[in-house]
């Protein structure tokens, strides 16, 4: 096959696929961060650690109980949601009316504690997690080789992102969530149990991080630091997309993954910083983010 503008198509499409996969993780994580910030006013620094916990729960389910990937895809997010409920009920609730800085510091501390525990128990070397039998192998598309598992990650992430968008923008529970995000006192004065809604929202958003962790386990090594490597980029994605819009978070996540992939093809030296350069530019031109609403 012909080279496209001097780039072998294998390399180009390979990097685009990698970009889409990174984008899928950016989208799943920034979506949860945006929802949490909207409802609780907390910048959840523990999000990356909870993503890591999701991957570890999958690993432990497999090692200790012999439960495979598919049960883990349900059970690990539930376990992370449980941790989320405990975090919100015992800690975040107490700082609800305080400066957002307290939430940032608290969740940063929580992230360090969680990562520290897992480093203590499992060390820093990664542990492999097998690709489920159903998703092994791949397809030769002619212009590139498409591993089945990677295609699955992109597709299921898109479905989960759109499902989350639908749940928030088109359902009754979602209208409660939007109302409680906008005017919590008034929503509560209408008889909506806002404190419980806040707990459920936080649990749901961190469950998305846990879900992303399980998706990541077969592709990357399961490692206590896998979350902190990712979360910095995800925060940049959230800043670029803006906090205001669910669909914005999803589009920005996938879009920036692709941009990063393309940069790897055309100018590999810049691949690690391109997102931060875009973040700086967006902050200069549109400080509320591409899809953000100025408060």
């Amino acid at each position: 096959m012909m080279d496209l503008i001097g780039i072998p198509p294998q390399a180009l499409f390979g990097q685009l696929l990698l970009g889409l996969i990174n984008g899928a993780f950016y989208a799943l994580l920034s979506l949860g961060l945006a929802v949490i910030f909207g409802m609780l006013g907390v910048i959840n620094f523990a999000h990356g650690a909870l993503y890591m916990v999701g991957a570890f729960v999958a690993l432990l389910l497999s090692q200790q109980l012999g439960l495979g990937y598919w049960p883990a895809l349900i059970l690990a997010p539930l376990a992370v949601a449980g941790i989320g409920v405990a975090l919100e009920r015992t800690m975040l609730k107490r700082i609800a009316k305080m400066d957002p800085l307290y939430g940032l510091l608290l969740t940063f501390g929580v992230a360090l504690v969680i990562e520290g525990l897992f480093r203590h128990w499992y060390g820093v070397s990664g542990q492999p997690y097998p690709v489920p039998a159903l998703l092994q192998g791949g397809t030769n598309l002619g212009f590139m080789y498409l591993p089945t598992y990677r295609a699955w990650v992109v597709v299921i992430s898109l479905i989960v992102c759109l499902g989350t968008w639908y749940a928030i923008e088109r359902t009754k529970l979602g209208s409660y969530l939007r109302a409680a995000t906008e005017k919590p006192q008034l929503a509560q004065a209408f008889g909506i149990n806002v404190p419980r809604l806040v707990t459920v929202t936080f649990a749901g958003a961190v469950a998305l991080a846990g879900f992303a962790g399980v998706l990541a386990a077969p592709m990357y090594q399961v490692n206590p630091l896998m979350g902190s490597n990712l979360i910095i980029v995800v925060f940049a994605v959230v800043v670029i997309g803006g906090m205001g819009s669910i669909l914005g978070a999803v589009l920005t996540g996938f879009g920036l993954g692709l941009v990063e992939g393309l940069t790897k093809v055309f100018y590999p030296e810049a691949a690690n910083i391109v997102i931060f350069v875009i973040m700086a530019l967006v902050l200069l031109v549109k400080p509320a983010g591409l899809f953000g609403r100025t408060a």
Partner: peptide, 24 residues
Amino acid sequence: RRPDRIAHQGIGYVPDDRGIFASL
């Protein structure tokens, strides 16, 4: 009592700023 429990005593509230939700 919490505001949501108070509402369930059968009270409806129209706030001074009307309280229409922009996101709904």
